[in-house]
Amino acid sequence: MAERVPTGITELDNMLGGGFLPKRNILVTGGPGTGKTTFCMEFLYRGAEQFNEKGLFVSLEEKQDRLVDNLSQGLDWDLRKHIEGGAIVMVTVENFSWEHLADTLQAYITRHGVKRVVIDSLTLLKMNTKDPFEFRRNFIGLMGFLDNLDCTTIVTAESNFMTREKASYSLEEFIVDGVIVLYNLPIKNERRRALEILKMRGVKHSNSMFPFKITESGVVVYQEEII
């Protein structure tokens, strides 16, 4: 079997045959409250905690302290231990420029041995790039650049569709190697989170939607249940 980069989310890794393929770029997309940030941080946290792999979280919006405070509510992870120990690096890129983002990624991946990267979020990259053509050119360039480096990357994106039927896709979904869609579906009087592997190049995967919960220990996917 090809080498894998386990997400550390056991059930998802089972669904992916062990995890992501190395050096791939994955888009995690979903509406507000679907759990994108927790999902991505778990990828880094498990990397540091279980697989001895350094992670980099690049935020284009939220500052490190606030992000960690938010994540610490309800999760029993010791994130600060890994941040203070250098196994997880949190960077906020303010005054966004593509050059600064690329400089930061290049530095941490090539000189600090970072193997797992999260860029949060593509939506802000888009908002900060006035010209749509320039955005596409830079995004394609960035993905191509990351392809050549020894790291596996998750990019988050906001989506404004709540159900599968209303989904619409843009260029980004076609460029990346994998797309995982997170939903927060209205069912009766409550909402239930669900996950779908929309695309994962080189990996056989189910086309079903699976419910998941964010528990104290992180994301738990219910593989036997289908929504």
Binding site: Q106, R137, G141, G144
Partner: peptide
């Protein structure tokens, strides 16, 4: 070659 990659190469050399 892709512009983005070439620019990264130049930055890396400079760094």
């Amino acid at each position: 070659m892709p512009e983005f990659q070439l620019e990264r190469n130049a930055v890396q050399g400079g760094e």
